[in-house]
Amino acid sequence: MAGTGKAHLRDGDKVLSIEDLVVEFKVSRNKTVKAVSGISFDVLRGETLGIVGESGCGKSTTGRAIMQIPPPTSGSIVFEGNELTELSHTKVREARTQVQMIFQDPVSSLNPRRSVRDSVLEPLEIWSRGTKEERSRLVDEILESVGIDPDRAAESKPHQFSGGQCQRISVARALVLDPTLIICDEPVSALDVSVQAQVLNLLEDLKKKFGLTLVFIAHDLAVVKNISDRVAVMYLGKLCEIASSDDLYARPAHPYTNVLLDSIPEPDPEADHSVGKIIGEPPSPVAPPSGCRFHPRCAYATDICSQEEPQLRSMGDDHFVACHHPVETPVALS
């Protein structure tokens, strides 16, 4: 897998450009674990990049590193032409107004003691934007555009709303500062299926309306495919494959991507529900395997896979994979 593969980086109007991102955490006195081990990617204006992977792959950490919470151990994060890692604390705070985040737990994302409308008003107050009337109007407008009644919002606290509504309120709060980029960290994972659809549709609509760029982090591949233009697959802190959504699902090249797709339970009894060719348990990020990190569980692994880390190579059509033996004739989805 690519630790230092940049073949997939593009030219163009880039809102975000990440290079060689490394995020380390201290686990105990002497041990550190690298949640993210050197990934690079970029996001063009108006694009939705989906980042997908299972637990321990580092996708959430990546999202938070972009927000500098916590700041990454090394690597470069260029947002709208500014190198975030070199900015002073104050400048980083200012940059935050342009990059917002939506979290997984809808209810815990809101202060339980405050009315929901106040929570949405908060960012405007922090940055003293506009007059009191202007702020009030803006908040009401945005609440309406996410489908929440502003009057009800003014008198109700988060626990009086459902999970889906709380999530929409969080979206409203993220929009109020008119950001360029919104990072969505598993925003629908905690919601019921029918509510999930509401929030996904809402994000698509708002993206068009406000001209947003999104980074959508999730473990549910079908959800990610639905909302993303481009999808990156991560495994154990590394990037395995990156391609346009339709292409990734039609022609998955990396064995891990293939296994991932095979494992998804499709709501179709006629589909083949037997397990794809994956072996064993995900290893711990503390002691990752040598060479290609996926090799111990890969059905196609050979010697080189345990010795040399594969770099991202082009498969054509803006489709890149980090593998010594990409699936040449990938399984096309029925």
Partner: peptide, 18 residues
């Protein structure tokens, strides 16, 4: 319910029923 689930076979940006 069935229509509100995103499915792999659908192209990206398919509108979901809610």
């Amino acid at each position: 319910l069935m229509r509100s689930i995103p499915k792999l076979v659908d192209p990206s940006h398919s509108r979901l029923a809610t």
